[in-house]
């Protein structure tokens, strides 16, 4: 063996045999351009077929390979062995239950994504022959950043408030909610407000800000959450000046 080897430690959890997760070390042949995902797939293909992980695109766009690498929420396909000369520790994404090895339970996250009504609720209904809803580049610019989310869940693994209160809607879903609220074609802000205002809404956030640091797509979910606080505070104090029984109201 002349090729240099790199150590990869993986937190294993096989529900049928492990009571608690355990660390297991592997040696993989090292090369400068080897991503952590490639290393893990090398392990799976050549060393230990029982290792479970999720991946698909290998280019930081499908959002399925999120995991803790060296303790930080990262995309395995966008993280490289060369940046970890001491060897690398890989663990399932924090704040999610571990299903098996590096695979986490995403159900709660999916449920939150649905709760924010992540689709355009048209301001005014239009028939087909009235044509499409038009939008200027400037109007698109308002939300484009928040539309870049790939639902990878890294921001949830970076958010202690998600870990402490799993019901908290969380950074990514709130960023998505914000994206639709900011869309000039959308008229659903009032409907989405109840969730923002609620006890599982934006006020769980204590402005740690790590979510925006780890986001691989520069979405800045922390900004969405904190702008949500301002909107919610406005709603809280001025709600009595609006006609009662509005959609999405909770008093």
């Amino acid at each position: 063996m002349s090729a240099a080897m790199a150590k990869v430690s993986v937190l294993r959890y096989r529900p049928e045999q492990d009571e608690v997760p355990v660390w297991q070390d592997y040696q993989v042949p090292y090369s400068d351009d080897m991503s952590v995902l490639t290393a893990l797939n090398y392990i799976k293909d050549e060393l230990d077929g029982t290792l479970s992980l999720r991946w698909s695109c290998r280019q930081a766009i499908c959002g399925s390979c999120g995991m803790m690498i060296g303790g930080k929420p990262s995309l395995a396909c966008k993280t490289f062995l060369r940046d970890y000369p001491e060897g690398i520790r890989v663990e399932a994404l924090a704040h999610f239950p571990i299903e098996r090895d590096l695979v986490v339970v995403m159900d709660g996250f999916m449920d939150k994504l649905q709760k924010v009504k992540p689709y355009i609720i048209p301001k005014e209904a239009r028939s087909l022959d009235e044509g499409e809803y038009l939008q200027t580049p400037a109007e698109m610019d308002l939300y484009a950043q928040f539309a870049g989310c790939i639902n990878c869940g890294l921001c949830y693994a970076a958010c202690p408030q998600v870990g402490l209160n799993p019901d908290f809607i969380g950074p990514g879903a709130i960023a998505l909610l914000h994206r639709y609220n900011l869309d000039s074609r959308d008229g659903g802000s009032a409907e989405r407000m109840a969730l923002i205002n609620s006890e599982v809404g934006v006020f769980n956030c204590t402005a740690v800000g790590y979510c925006s640091e780890v986001c691989p797509k520069m979405v800045d979910p922390a900004n969405a959450v904190n702008v949500g606080k301002m909107n919610s505070a406005r709603d809280y104090f001025f709600r009595f000046m609006r006609p009662a029984g509005e959609k999405g109201e909770c008093r």
Partner: peptide, 16 residues
């Protein structure tokens, strides 16, 4: 679903 959501009173304390 909305019925189950309780409004948070944090805005008061958050503004202070």
């Amino acid at each position: 679903m909305n019925q189950a959501l309780k409004r948070s009173h944090e805005p008061i304390f958050w503004l202070l």
